[in-house]
Write a protein that binds this DNA or RNA. Structure first.
Length: 773
RNA sequence: GGGCUUGUGGUCUAGUGGUUAUGACGUCGCCCUUACAAGGCGAAUGUCGCCGGUUCAAAUCCGGUCAAGCCCACCA
């Protein structure tokens, strides 16, 4: 008998702690079960996890729990993403230091310190949500261990995969214009660019044509790049300018002459129809410079300041230089008009600062040659929801350059290269160990080419995505456990957000193909966002994020989890988070508890009677049907479907109708009734266990077994014949209740009513239930 | 500029041609019925974004339109 009259969220913590202590969900090393592997997205450790993280991890946890009950050996490690700019920025804030003025060794130490401190916060957040990771401790000798991407074990693999790609000729260094963020002072990839709608001034500037001495007008938003102009274009169909072909224009202020040429890139209808191409105002400029074989004239340096070539503006930052040159142009009569236009500016995803295009020597990973292979791989992956595949295909269609992978920052995996000081021989770390070339000495004593023993270590680090794009290789033991890897690659499931399809999913597939020649996932589950009550995206800068720990302390883990399942299908659309809805979901937890209290008040009968009463047979049939439906929905990762079906069944059919019908016989200790009550409720608990693991665990242990519910098999469904009577039964019961209400009678009072013919099977129970005369 | 997705009572949501449109949350009214007032019964709230078409019949199919969101793009 369950004594506590109410389920209370304070009962959750001891149960969850016991799971963690007993390592209930450990990955089974020597098991014969098929492996189901989930490559979880390592969340940035220093961002306090918000409800969006919580929500999606709960979904992944439901997958893991369901698959465990279906007999799989589930690989579900907790990973923490500990590399990259956000870590550095957080460290700068927390210790009030600057990466520019702090020695590298000290800064890196501080990053590590900051991460160690915050590591528990997020870990505890996940525990509190009842997430059944394999392990909450680091133990890299074991499959399924918790891991950090900045630990030597992980970074060693990152470097090894760099070496592998290097040996395959997939990595090269090149000096070409790249996206550069002057604030973060590093090269960034196309996938790290955001766009911001901004008002900017479109300036109409007067140029003189050398040959004719006539004026032409050119519109630009980047007048500060004037002296980087190498050509002026007009559209070949633009009759106004046909006479300018091959002539030259004189740049105002700088008095340099540039060629005028016809080219389809110029739009007749924009501005005057003439466009100046500078190195480099935007990506079009870059493309045209390459296409027309022009020599770039760089005017912005890596600090975001104007270079010598810009003359009087040297040393100014871009914004000031723009302001000043506009003033100067105006003063000298070159500026004829200025319009404010809406302009889509590419900005750095992290700093939100406009990016510049600067030529830098950087390492690139080849990806242009791989696009069609990745497209083929996309066809091999099952997407949930299927429409999500389009996100990946759209991205594939827009890839235009190889992936720049080197960064000029500190906290990420170091590029494992040493250069011979004498002959420039390049050595790539081949030791299998994690090494830091900026501080560690080269493993080779002598240069194999010139015998010199003086080496210079590479100072740059790798893009964070170069780390994260091998997570599935890491968790499956690509390097550490080749036998296991061979048997269990590709990874079963990649769950992740839609916003990182063009990064995490794409890069992982790309690198998986390059390293293993195999599509690395069988399935991908792409979720949309959890947004706030108004439908706005939660973000740190807006401050509208909801900390799940706040929700846990208010409503408890189970309410949040049931809300997660009830709210909607996150692969189909955004989910709004509202406190009242979480609270509402919690009512079902109470309902379940009270049903358990009712049943546990009777003696448990586990031996099946020879013959079941028809009411009991009916509820088992109906439950079988529900079970079958739930199983289907679980298989499609549609937890919303499961939750809605089982909630409706438990509340409307099971509690309202069945329990009332069976009550009399239960009090009379009828063995068919008692057996069925216990049996049916057990199936209900098992079906709900992946969604609400804590309360089902508690009730299961109180009523059925000392063993955890999470070690049980998912129930099999059986006969469903009588379930077609369900709606008739509910209809009849409602009718009786309505009649009594109409007649102002208490539910105890007797009533004269005829039982419908098709329900005559249940005559005895219905008569007792409604006190029918 | 192109593409994709979405638009159903105050809020969220089911519903891919067929009787008075599903359910939940919230609101209101009545009711302690030996598991549950964190419950039960019941009520109100909708021109299914707008316009037009196909059809005996449209929330559902088609065309257009508006709005929101996302993705992509070389308009300086």
């Amino acid at each position: 008998m369950i004594n506590e009259t109410r389920w209370d969220k304070s009962m959750e913590e001891p149960i969850i702690n016991e799971w963690v202590k007993k390592k209930l969900y450990s990955f089974e090393d020597n098991s014969k079960k098929p492996v189901y592997s989930i490559d979880t997205p390592p969340p940035y450790i220093n961002t306090p996890i918000h409800i969006g993280h919580g929500y999606t991890f709960i979904c992944m946890d439901m997958m893991a729990r369901y698959k465990r009950m279906k007999g799989f050996n589930v690989l579900f490690p907790l990973g923490l993403d500990c590399n990259g700019l956000p870590i550095e920025i957080q460290t700068e804030k927390q210790f009030n230091v600057s990466i520019r003025t702090t020695p590298r060794e000290e800064f890196v130490k501080k990053c590590r310190e900051m991460l160690d401190e915050t590591s528990d916060i997020s870990t505890n957040g996940f525990k509190g949500l009842g997430i059944g990771f394999n392990d909450y401790e680091f133990d890299y000798s074991k499959i399924g261990s918790k891991y950090r991407t900045d630990d030597p074990e992980y970074r060693a693999l990152t470097q090894k995969t760099f070496k592998d790609a290097w040996d395959k000729g997939l990595i090269y260094e090149d000096n070409k214009p790249t996206n550069y963020c002057p604030v973060c002072r590093t090269t960034i990839a196309d996938s790290e660019i955001d766009y911001k709608e901004e008002k900017s001034a479109l300036n109409d500037i007067k140029f003189k044509v050398k040959e004719t001495e006539k004026d032409i007008i050119i519109s630009t938003t980047r007048p500060e790049l004037l002296n980087s102009c190498q050509i002026i274009l007009f559209n070949p169909n633009d009759d106004r300018y046909k006479n300018l072909q091959g002539k030259h224009a004189i740049l105002p202020i700088y008095d340099r002459e540039v060629l005028i040429k016809a080219h389809p890139a110029a739009d007749k209808d924009f501005g005057s129809g003439l466009v100046m191409i500078c190195s480099f105002g935007d990506t079009t400029d870059i493309r045209l410079f390459i296409e027309l074989g022009l020599e770039p004239i760089y005017s912005i340096n890596e600090e975001g300041k104007m270079m010598k070539v810009s003359g009087p503006y040297e040393g100014m930052n871009v914004k000031d230089a723009r302001k000043k040159i506009i003033e100067d142009l105006k003063e000298k009569g070159f500026l004829v008009d200025q319009k404010i236009i809406d302009h889509r500016t590419p900005v750095c995803e992290r700093s939100k600062n406009p990016i510049e295009f600067i030529a830098m020597k950087e390492f690139y990973l080849k990806q242009m040659d791989w696009v069609s292979k990745v497209r083929k791989a996309a066809d091999e992956i099952e997407f949930y929801a299927p429409e999500s595949k389009q996100l990946l295909l759209d991205w594939l269609n827009s890839i235009s350059i190889d992936w720049p992978i080197s960064r000029r920052r500190y906290y990420s995996t170091e590029i494992p290269i040493w250069y011979c000081k004498k002959c420039k021989y390049t050595y790539v770390n081949d030791t299998g160990k994690y090494l830091r070339p900026w501080i560690d000495s080269c493993p080779l004593k002598k240069c194999p080419k010139c015998n010199s023993n003086e080496w210079e270590g590479e100072k740059r680090i790798l893009d964070t995505w170069f780390d994260s794009s091998i997570s599935e290789l890491f968790i499956l033991g690509y390097d550490s456990n080749p036998k296991f890897f061979k048997n269990n690659y590709p990874c079963t499931m990649r769950p992740q957000g839609k916003e990182i399809v063009r990064t995490w999913l794409y890069y992982t597939i790309l690198r998986g193909l390059q390293l293993t020649e195999t599509t690395c996932f069988k399935q991908a589950w792409i979720h949309k966002h959890v947004v706030d009550e108004q439908g706005y995206k939660m973000s740190k800068s807006k401050g509208n994020g909801i900390d799940p720990r706040e929700l846990i302390s208010k409503f408890g883990c189970e309410s949040i989890r049931f809300w997660t399942a009830m709210e909607g299908d996150i692969t189909k659309g955004d989910i709004r988070c509202s406190f009242t809805r979480v609270e509402g979901a919690g009512k079902f937890i109470s309902k379940l508890w009270n049903i358990a209290r009712f049943i546990s008040g009777f003696e448990s009968v586990s031996k099946e009677p020879k013959e079941l009463n028809k009411t009991d047979e009916w509820i088992m049939n109906e439950l079988n049907k529900v079970l079958k439906d739930c199983d289907n929905h679980y298989n499609n990762y549609d937890f919303n479907g499961v939750a809605k079906i089982i909630r409706n069944f438990v509340w409307e059919t099971y509690a309202s109708s069945y329990l009332e019908m069976v009550k009399r016989r239960a009090y009379d200790k009828d063995s068919s009734a008692l057996y069925t009550l216990y049996k049916s409720f057990k199936i209900i608990l098992l079906t709900l266990a992946p969604i609400i693991p804590v309360i089902t665990e508690k009730l299961f242990k109180e009523m059925y077994s000392s063993e955890s519910i999470h070690l049980q098999k998912f129930p099999e469904s059986g006969e469903t014949k009588l379930s077609e009577l369900t709606s008739k039964i509910i209809e009849f019961n409602s009718l009786v209740w309505a009649k009594k209400k109409e007649g102002n009678k208490s539910l105890k009072d007797s009533i004269k009513i005829e039982i419908p013919k098709e329900l005559i099977l249940f005559k005895e129970d219905l008569t007792n239930m409604h006190n029918i005369e």
